[in-house]
Design a protein around this nucleic acid. Structure first.
Lengths: 414, 414
DNA sequence: TTCTAATAAGACGTAAGAAG
DNA sequence: CTTCTTACGTCTTATTAGAA
């Protein structure tokens, strides 16, 4: 058993247990990184080549690699379990929140339903149903909340913008986490263990809206950075330009954006948007990015139309990004648009009236892109994950320059 | 380093690495079980006392206990992580199913709501609202399904019972996992990580109903065994008697039960029930226990009234117990009763019309009891976990014997 | 070709040295 | 003492040479 131990250098004689020197460990680690499972031949070669390993028995090398593999395996398994645990816990939390929201929505609908049913009955008896509609309308919250009773000054002044921004934030949050919109199940989007998230689309509210919740293993700041860069993940985005940036409150930023979309068919002109974007941090550490159109209706400055485009309207929308316990983020996305379907021929109008399309093209595309980026480089170099879309973005910019005059200097949103 | 190895027996001489014999390991394990951290003194004592350890160096004993503690710690941590993982995965699945159900319910309600709204509007214009109610009623599924168009023979024959049993099964399942009842959130029962489960109560259906879903770390068969023994966990159960047992189909059993409840106040007489219980196994391995009242209305044999009692009716209810991947069970409970509130004074009538009380006293009590039993003896001896309720059951039987004549020989449901 | 014994290599568990 | 590390025994599995 105590054979071939004489090969070891002078200092140690019969003590079989020796710790390898830091240099030796370093060398072995380096070799392990190159090849964690060297052959018998390769091991002998190592002993000959590497000076610091000259005095080590090839058998010891073999054992060291075995132990090293074993350690890595154990650590990996433990890490895998822990990360899976964090993910599942976060998913659980998200699902419970969604459950809670759905429960509330059900309660509300059941209540409302009872009211309607009663109305229908009483309408058959007496004709006191003139108040019906108004009462119900005030009782339900399914439409976008009306502006506050005393609208603050609405101009392009910082105070005016701030007022609009805060209102947008409130409305977005109530759509994202509350029952401000009657969300219904996205057709074909069953919740599953490997599904992209929880997807819902609007029902019976003005415009078209979609909502998505999901998890992604990425820091909130990075998620926001990506999501704010529409051309990166929104295929239909032809260009986006940040016209103005101004600070708002503590940690808040208000931006004015101009964005152009591609037209889905040649039968209809493309849409463009003038948007206000408000980025801020909530008390609980969540990052919120919310947006809405700026139009003369809102009292803001009237933005000039750009010729081949039809001006679309974005109703309060945005992203809520909450840091998850496991290091990732919980993301809520709401996209609520009015694509002015009156302006397109009737045959293509469904394209402009479908919430499901918004869900597919915007909300889900955003989640999908984030997932892709997050999985693409798990733990490897963080830089360099914007490579593929770069070409696409260049094309987009080129097209933009050809098509209109104002979309050259992009913001440094990446 | 190679000291005190001479103490070892003849066979080995200078080889320092020796495995302990199975007898030695067994002895050490036994000692570890008694005291995992013996003092130096105690260890020397062990060497002297235990014959098989006579040849072992006390230093080796020390090392063995050290390593043993380390191993246990590692194993424990790994096991904890894995079990937590299984639990979270099962919870996730349950929540996703519940989410799906809620989504469907929302879609249905939104649709129905739209219909009512339209009706209300058209009622204001024309008076063609006579068809309204019937149309809506056929469109919704919120009431208990009507019996099939051609009712099979309904008598006490096996065929007749089997027909009732299958129908009961279908109705129970549609309440447990579908939208046969408009379930709404149980007041004050927010879904939480440590909540007992998902609790809902009925709205707008005949009688009072409650629904609970949850996980428990117990095999489905054991869960069914416990849940079928009402006196065990239902505080209000005064007695239960299995009158008849007959096999039904493959693996199925039909039982006829008589059950008495305590009256909640002295102002009202107590309720009793004649029930049919159908136990079977679904294709996916789920265990189902469903119940309903047998009454002359159902064509079954008319059961005699028992004097001080008012005969209550149990609408299709039961337990769906699905084995979970992690070894535990996913449980769905539906309790749907008609407690004949007309028969009690108006002051106590709310007690008989509240779904929330049913949820508290029955559905949640069942889950709570299971949880208690499952946590009480995690991995210890399985037998003996019916001890405490035994006294209660004896009391129940005593009371029953005093109160009525027919509830002596209990079935061997435990 | 197919079956079998010998050999080698790896995974796994564990005894014991070393560092904190 | 705990934690990490080295080293070794045992068991399983894959490969191969030799025999039926």
């Amino acid at each position: 058993m105590v054979t071939a131990r004489e090969a070891r250098e002078a200092a140690m004689d019969a003590s079989k247990y020796v710790r390898y020197t830091p240099e030796q460990v370093e060398a072995l680690e380096r070799l392990y990184y190159e090849c964690p499972k060297p052959s018998s031949l390769r091991r002998q070669q190592l002993v000959r080549e590497c000076a610091v390993l000259a005095n080590v028995d090839p058998k010891q090398i073999k054992v060291w690699f075995q132990n090293r593999r074993c350690r890595e395996k154990q650590r990996k398994e433990s890490g895998r379990l822990q990360s899976l645990n964090r993910k599942l816990t976060a998913m659980n939390k998200l699902l419970m929140e969604e459950n809670d929201r759905l429960q509330k929505q059900v309660s509300h609908l059941v209540y409302e339903n009872g009211y309607y049913r009663q109305q229908t009955h009483s309408a058959g008896l007496a004709t006191t149903d003139t108040s019906c509609e108004s009462v119900v309308t005030s009782g339900q919250q399914n439409l976008v909340a009306a502006p506050p009773p005393q609208p603050p000054p609405r101009d392009a002044s910082p105070a005016g913008l701030m007022s609009i921004a805060e209102e947008t934030l409130t409305e977005f949050l109530s759509k994202a986490t509350g029952t401000a919109v009657e969300w219904v199940q996205m057709p074909g989007m069953k919740p599953g263990p490997d599904s992209i998230g929880i997807i819902a689309i609007s029902h019976g509210c003005a415009g078209v809206a979609a909502r998505a919740c999901g998890l992604v293993g990425m820091e909130p700041a990075k998620v926001a950075e990506i999501l704010k860069d529409w051309p990166l993940w929104l295929r239909d985005c032809r260009s986006m330009e940040v016209v103005n940036v101004l600070p708002a409150g503590s940690n808040g930023t208000i931006e004015l954006l101009y964005m152009q979309l591609y037209a889905p068919t040649t039968l209809a002109p493309a849409r463009d948007f003038w948007l206000m974007r408000y980025t801020s941090i909530l008390d609980d550490g969540s990052l919120v990015v919310c947006e809405r159109s700026l139009s003369s209706k809102q009292g803001g400055p009237s933005m000039p139309l750009v010729q081949p485009f039809i001006r679309g309207e974005m109703l309060p929308s945005g992203f809520l990004i909450r840091p998850s316990d496991g290091g990732g983020s919980v993301i809520h996305i709401v996209d609520h648009l009015d694509l002015e379907p009156w302006s397109v021929p009737e045959v293509v109008r469904p394209l402009y009236e479908s919430s499901a399309i918004v869900a597919q093209k915007m909300s889900m595309a955003a989640l999908r892109y984030l997932r892709q980026v997050a999985h693409e480089d798990t733990n490897s170099v963080i830089t360099g994950w914007g490579r593929q879309p770069a070409a696409l973005r260049a094309l987009s910019q080129k097209l933009t320059r050809l098509g209109s005059s104002n979309s050259t200097n992009r913001s440094n949103s990446l």
